[in-house]
């Protein structure tokens, strides 16, 4: 399993990265954590002529809470999130997800941004970021734009990013009182992709009613999915059992899984229901504790 030959670049700043992307277009591939790309290259499923290694660029590793956001640089490793006390205290959905991605060694290398732009519907960050309503900062030579997470995924392994664009930042709203989230992942074993994953994030207002809700689904469609109707079921409710069950049913309806070795369509659809219920119950508990 030897990759095809390629030219390797290790730029020392982002402008240099963008210039290389401009120059090489589709021929270039950004190397982040490499935990999906390198195996794909070993199988020669990916044969980029140019590899642009963005490891070591400090700007891409930004990881801090400021100006009302939690900023997660695209090169922040899964393990960094899993090991962060700030995240454990204030962003339990992130923490939940980071602890179940792949395996501990892969988490030491794999990155949030790399995983997101890989756009594997079975990747865990997509649904988590949907639940958080994350925004991406996307740069190209001479320009920058903000991309809502809902506009990132086009289909399996395909994003709306242009070949000359680089994600330079990911941000989610800073945690506030009354927020809680959780990630539920059903996997066959550690290191497996999700059979089904569900990310939920809710905000309880002072009156105990749900004032915001985000629900993202993993591995049950061509992309990570937002369960918008399920979110609607929760909004304005008291997050009581009936509302959660109704949301769980709506989430299952929003999914369009395909049968594979992990299970049948109907199994996966029902797992969306079961896991949504579990994630929401944990989210509510956490939100109440954070009120």
């Amino acid at each position: 399993m030897i990759p095809a030959a390629f030219d390797y670049h290790h730029p020392s700043d982002i402008d240099e990265v963008l210039a290389l992307l401009d120059e090489h277009g589709w021929e270039a591939k950004i190397l982040a954590g490499g935990q999906s790309l390198i195996p794909a290259m070993r199988f020669r499923l990916a044969e980029p002529g140019t590899v642009v290694d963005v490891n070591g660029l400090a700007e891409l590793e930004r990881f801090e809470e400021s100006d009302g956001f939690l900023h997660i640089g695209p090169m922040v490793r899964h393990a960094t999130i899993a090991g962060s006390e700030l995240v454990r205290d204030r962003y339990p959905l992130l923490s939940d997800a980071a602890e179940v991605i792949a395996d501990p060694l892969v988490r030491n290398r794999g990155t949030v941004g790399g995983s997101l732009v890989h756009a594997d519907p079975a990747g865990d960050w997509g649904s988590v970021m949907l639940a958080y309503r994350a925004e991406l900062t996307v740069r190209r030579a001479g320009g920058e734009r903000t991309l809502p997470i809902d506009e990132l995924f086009l289909t399996t392994f395909v994003t709306s990013l242009e070949p000359n664009e680089l994600v330079t930042g990911i941000r989610i709203p800073a945690a506030s009182d009354g927020e809680g989230g959780a990630y539920e992942k059903l996997e066959r074993k550690v290191g497996d992709f999700a059979t089904v994953g569900v990310a939920t994030q809710i905000t309880l207002a002072d009156d105990g009613k749900v004032s915001a809700a985000g629900i993202g689904l993993t591995a049950v469609g061509a992309t990570s999915l937002r369960a918008a109707a399920a979110e609607g079921e929760l909004l304005g409710s008291g997050a009581e059992a009936a509302a959660i069950e109704a949301a769980a049913v709506k989430a299952a309806e929003a999914s369009s899984p395909t049968a594979d070795t992990r299970g049948s369509e109907e199994y996966k659809r029902d797992m969306v229901r079961v896991l949504t219920g579990r994630a929401l119950r944990r989210s509510v508990d956490r939100a109440r504790a954070a009120s």
């Binding site: 390797y8 490499g34 935990q35 390198i38 290694d53 060694l105 892969v106 290398r109």
Partner: peptide
């Protein structure tokens, strides 16, 4: 598995040039 600056990683999923 090896340690990269003290952190365990899988050395089949990293290119040698990245270890520079």
């Amino acid at each position: 598995t090896i340690l990269l600056n003290g952190t365990p990683i899988k050395s089949c999923t990293m290119f040698a040039v990245q270890a520079d």
